[in-house]
Simulated scan of single mutants.
Amino acid sequence: MQCPNQFLMLPTHHSLPLMNFPDFQTKSSSFCSWNRIPKIHHGPKAYHGFYVENASKKMLPFPPKVKNITSTSNPFVKHCVKLRLSSSYRYLHGSVLVVGAILDRPIIECLLVLDNSHIPEEIDYPSVHIIRVNSVVMSKLSGVQSNDSVHVIALVRFPTTFHVASDNLLEEDCRKWFSFPHRILVLDGIQDPGNLGTLLRSATAFRWGGVLLLPGCCDPFNEKALRAGRGASFQIQIITGNWTHIETLRKEFQMKMLAGHPSISDKLNPVLKLSKELADSLAELPLCLVLGSEGTGLSETSKSSCELVSIPMAGEFESLNVSVAGGIFMYMLQPENHVTI
Rank of each mutant, 00 (worst) to 15 (best):
Q2C: 10
C3L: 14
P4G: 07
F7R: 10
M9S: 14
M9G: 08
H14V: 08
L18H: 10
P22R: 08
D23W: 06
F31G: 09
F31N: 01
W34P: 01
I40T: 15
H41F: 13
H42S: 06
P44K: 07
K45T: 14
Y47E: 12
H48F: 05
H48S: 10
G49N: 04
V52A: 13
E53P: 00
K57H: 11
K58T: 13
M59N: 14
P63Y: 07
S71Y: 00
S73R: 08
N74L: 02
H79P: 05
C80N: 05
K82R: 06
L83N: 07
Y89P: 04
R90I: 04
S95R: 11
L97H: 05
L97G: 03
L97Q: 01
A101W: 01
L103P: 00
D104K: 01
E109P: 03
L111F: 00
L112H: 03
V113W: 00
D115N: 13
H118P: 04
I119E: 02
P120T: 08
E121P: 03
E122M: 07
D124G: 07
P126C: 09
S127H: 11
I130P: 05
I130F: 06
I131E: 02
R132T: 15
V136H: 13
V136P: 04
V136C: 15
V137T: 04
L141D: 11
S146P: 03
N147R: 10
N147C: 09
A154W: 02
V156K: 00
F158N: 07
F158P: 07
P159E: 00
P159W: 04
T160L: 11
T160H: 10
V164L: 02
V164F: 01
S166I: 05
L170P: 05
K176Q: 13
K176N: 12
W177H: 09
H182Y: 13
I184A: 06
V186L: 03
V186K: 03
D188P: 02
I190S: 02
Q191K: 13
G194A: 03
N195L: 02
G197F: 05
F206E: 14
W208A: 08
P215H: 05
G216A: 09
C217Q: 03
D219Q: 00
F221Y: 12
N222G: 04
K224T: 14
A225D: 06
R227C: 06
A232S: 13
A232D: 10
F234A: 08
I236G: 06
I239F: 06
W243R: 09
L249E: 04
K251L: 14
F253Q: 10
M255S: 10
I264F: 13
I264K: 15
S265K: 15
P270E: 15
L274N: 00
K276S: 11
K276N: 10
D280A: 07
S281G: 00
A283L: 05
E284S: 05
G292P: 00
S304M: 12
C306A: 12
C306R: 09
A314L: 07
G315Q: 01
F317A: 08
S319F: 08
V322M: 01
A325N: 02
G326I: 09
M330F: 06
E336F: 08
T340Y: 10
